[in-house]
Amino acid sequence: MHTIGFAIYEVPQQFQGQRDVHLDKNFFLTHAQTAKSETFINLREVSSRFKLPPGEYLIVPSTFDPHLNGDFCIRVFSEKQTETLPCDDPVSAELSDEVVSDEDVDSGFRNLFSKLAGADMEISAYELRTIMNKIVAKRTDIKTDGFSLDTCRIMVNLMDDSGNGKLGLGEFATLWKKVQRYLSIYKQNDMDNSGMMSTPEMRVAFKDAGGCVYVVFIHLE
């Protein structure tokens, strides 16, 4: 069960009326979302209600984490007549193995984990929030209000292969590896060194992070 959500984009005027719309990644980097799901969440179903003007739109479901494959079933309920078609363009991604097993963790990180996790040798969302906020509080090059408990719960859900709601040694090491990677991408694309990301910077950062999306075309009368 991956953490999932979706976004809705309005089809550009030059593509309206076509049934074989093909929009590359540059479109998603340069066009704002018309609407989106309230949150990305680790559930089997995500639903939202929107009021949109007549037109043609793309519904783009995706996983929260990049480079994950998944099958999506999309249902559209409308008060007005609609026509819905899938966009069958092939989607592919080069998947990199970022999973760290317990055996791959070095002794230094293992000792650090023991101190952070405590007697049960697992890290809960509450403990993760404390750890992450202590880390970012020491960073003067990043502006942040810190990690909320909900954010840390999502992070735990993403990494929790055992399903017990906590992170073991390998799971935490995998999360830490991902955090370091995204932090590096963030810093590389913070071109003005403001500690924050502008919309153009975020577009490039999102491109660097990679991703895999699935598209559905909908026409609203």
Rank of each mutant, 00 (worst) to 15 (best):
I142G: 05
S107W: 06
D160S: 09
M132D: 00
S114R: 15
Q188A: 15
V99F: 03
A205I: 00
R203M: 08
S96F: 11
K115F: 05
R181T: 09
T140F: 11
Q188E: 14
P12N: 10
F77A: 13
G165K: 03
F50A: 05
M202I: 14
C87S: 12
T39A: 13
I8D: 04
S101D: 02
P54W: 01
N26P: 10
M132N: 02
E201V: 00
F172H: 00
D160I: 04
M191C: 10
F109L: 13
S62K: 08
L158A: 03
Q180A: 14
P61K: 08
E10S: 14
D104T: 06
T84G: 11
S114C: 12
P61Q: 10
L58D: 02
Q33P: 05
M197K: 07
E45V: 15
V105T: 02
G108S: 13
D106Q: 03
Q81E: 06
I154F: 08
E79A: 12
P90H: 08
K51N: 10
S148L: 08
V204Y: 08
V179N: 07
G210A: 01
I59T: 02
S78A: 15
V179A: 10
D160L: 05
D97V: 01
V105H: 07
K178L: 12
E127D: 11
I59P: 01
C87A: 13
D89A: 15
F6C: 01
L158D: 04
N69I: 10
R19M: 11
P66G: 07
S198D: 07
D208H: 07
L183S: 07
S48G: 09
T3R: 06
H31K: 07
D71E: 13
L158R: 03
F28K: 00
I185S: 09
F217S: 13
M1E: 10
M121I: 10
G165N: 01
G146W: 09
L23G: 01
V156W: 00
E38C: 10
D106F: 03
G163H: 04
P200Y: 06
S48F: 08
K51H: 13
S114Q: 14
G55K: 05
R139P: 05
V60T: 04
L112K: 12
K134F: 13
V21M: 03
